[in-house]
Nucleic acid binder design. Structure first.
Ligand SMILES: [Mn+2]
Ligand SMILES: [Mn+2]
Ligand SMILES: [Zn+2]
Ligand SMILES: [Zn+2]
Lengths: 145, 145
DNA sequence: TATATAATTGAGACTGATTCTCAATATCAT
DNA sequence: ATGATATTGAGAATCAGTCTCAATTATATA
C-alpha cells in the first residue's frame, strides 16, 4: 500500500532521472505523518532513533528536493530556526507564530491573496511565492505574560 | 548640526543608561544615508574602508539595539541573507523581493493590515510584528528570463 | 579638570546550521 | 546479472552570528 504522495514523489523522481531510495521515502513519510512543522534536526534525530542511519546531508538534500518540487514549504520561527511541512492536498496558507513557545497557527484569506496579485501587477512584478508571517503571543502565552 | 534621529537615538541611550559612542553614531549614520536595504557585512566593510576600525560584533550589537528600539527593521532575501533599513519617519511597509537580483520594491496596503488585525483577534493571538514578503522576478529580470 | 565607575569595544574563539567533498554503495535500465 | 549513473554518510569546510575578555572610553561627580 503505497500512499498517493509517495506515488507522486516517485513520478517526480523518475521524470528527473533521479532514483527512489529508502532515505528519500523515509523523509517524505516523516513529513506526511508529522502533526506540526518540523525542523531538519527533528527529522535527522528521529529517523536515526529507529532505523539505523541517515545522514544530515541527505535530510537537507531531500528537503530541498521536496521544496523545489512544490511538495514542501518552510517557515521560520522568531529565533531564525527553519521548519518544514508537506503540501500534499493542503491548500496554501500563512502563519501566526508565537515568539514565546514557537507554536504556529495557520490562516488563509482570499482577499489578502487577491490584493497581493493586484499589487504585483501594478509593479510589473512576477510573483512566485510569498511569506506572510505574523509574530506575536499565542492565547496561552499571552495569559501568563 | 545633529540630526533629529541622532537626538532621538541619544535619548534612548540615555534613558537606558547606555553610552553615546562614535561607533553607534556611525552605524546609525550609515543606515540613515543608505539608499537601499543593507547587510551587516555592508556596514562592517564600508565603515572600515574610511574610518579606522569598527568590529563586526559592534555592528551586530548596534543593529539589535536599533531593532529592539523600533528604529530599524530587517528583511531577508531569497537566499537567506538579512538586510536592514532604518525606520525614522518612514511608515510601515512590506516588500517584494526579486529572486534574481535581490532588488526590493516596497508596498503597503491598509486593507491587508486591517484583515491581519481581524484574524489575530479571532485567534486570540496578540500580534507584535509581521513580515509579508512576496518573492518573484522584478520587471527588469523578468524581461530577460 | 581629574578621578572613579561602569559601559563599550574589537580580536578572535566559538557555535549552530548548512553545504561540500569524495570514496563506498545502491538503484535501475538493459 | 551487469554496467552506468545517482546517492549516500562521514566529516571537513563554510558562513553568519554570538561570546569572552582585557583594554579602552564615556560620563557622573568632586
Ligand atoms: Mn503551516
Ligand atoms: Mn523597506
Ligand atoms: Zn505561545
Ligand atoms: Zn530583479
Amino acid at each position: 500500500m503505497k500512499s498517493e504522495p509517495h506515488k507522486v514523489f516517485e513520478q517526480l523522481l523518475n521524470s528527473k532521472g533521479l532514483k527512489v531510495t529508502k532515505q528519500r521515502n523515509d523523509i517524505l513519510d516523516y513529513l506526511l505523518k508529522a502533526k506540526k512543522h518540523v525542523t531538519p534536526e527533528d527529522i535527522y534525530r528521529d529517523l536515526n532513533k529507529k532505523d539505523a542511519n541517515i545522514g544530515r546531508a541527505t535530510v537537507f538534500r531531500t528537503l530541498h528536493l521536496l521544496e523545489n518540487a512544490g511538495f514542501a514549504d518552510k517557515i521560520q520561527f522568531a529565533d531564525g530556526r527553519l521548519a518544514y511541512e508537506h503540501k500534499f492536498a493542503r491548500p496554501h496558507h500563512d502563519h501566526m507564530i508565537c515568539v514565546e513557545c514557537s507554536s504556529v497557527l495557520e490562516f488563509s484569506n482570499a482577499t489578502i491573496e487577491k490584493i497581493q496579485e493586484e499589487i504585483s501587477k501594478k509593479f510589473m512584478f512576477k510573483p512566485l511565492w510569498h511569506r506572510h508571517e505574523i509574530f506575536g503571543r499565542c492565547k496561552k502565552c499571552n495569559k501568563m505574560d
